[in-house]
Amino acid sequence: MTADESIKLDQQLCFALYAASNAMTRLYRDRLEPLGLTYPQYLVMLVLWEKDGLTVKAIGERLHLDSGTLTPMLKRMEQSGLISRARDAADERQVTISLTPGGRALEARVAAMQRDMACLLPLKPQDLARLRTELRGLARGLMDRT
């Protein structure tokens, strides 16, 4: 039996992205666990290290996550002492997320981990930069369609 080439698994861009994403997430998970972070928590920390004191909505927009996904994770991160959550006095619907001293201190450890991660990837720095640019463009193009 011959299947149409276009429906073979190895021809699917979605599967190639899925497999690469799973492999990358596993690499990070093994290195983040000793730091007490999950991969999604790591992404939140990256956003806050870039700009502290963001609202849940702003973090969600940056990570393409809804508040229903973020809120339970942020509560766990607060219990772990990485962030603080505070309702805006002018608009109690808004919750501002800020790094704690413990959350700020973790940045140096993550930076060291990130340097180690770069050595594991089988691409030259310029190829990584090109791949990041292409993937960001792909993501933007797909999000514009939804």
Rank of each mutant, 00 (worst) to 15 (best):
K51D: 13
I83Y: 10
Q11D: 05
T55R: 04
Y28R: 02
S67W: 00
L63S: 10
Q11Y: 00
L46I: 04
G103Y: 07
K57C: 02
Q41L: 09
G60Y: 00
R140G: 01
R109K: 15
R87T: 13
K51E: 14
G141T: 05
R87E: 15
R140S: 10
S21H: 01
R132H: 14
V110K: 01
L9A: 15
D144K: 04
A3H: 09
I59C: 05
T71I: 13
R29W: 03
I97Y: 01
V110C: 11
A111S: 14
S21V: 00
R145H: 09
T55K: 05
P122E: 06
R85N: 09
D10T: 04
R132V: 04
G141V: 08
E61M: 06
A111R: 14
R115L: 11
R62C: 04
Y39L: 03
A16G: 13
R136M: 09
V47Y: 09
R31M: 12
L27N: 12
A89M: 00
R145M: 08
E107C: 15
Y28H: 08
G102A: 11
T71D: 08
L35N: 10
G36I: 05
T71R: 06
A20C: 07
Q11C: 04
M117S: 00
G137S: 11
P34Y: 03
R85S: 13
E78D: 13
S80C: 12
D127H: 14
A139G: 05
G68P: 04
P125S: 08
Y42D: 06
E61H: 01
C119H: 12
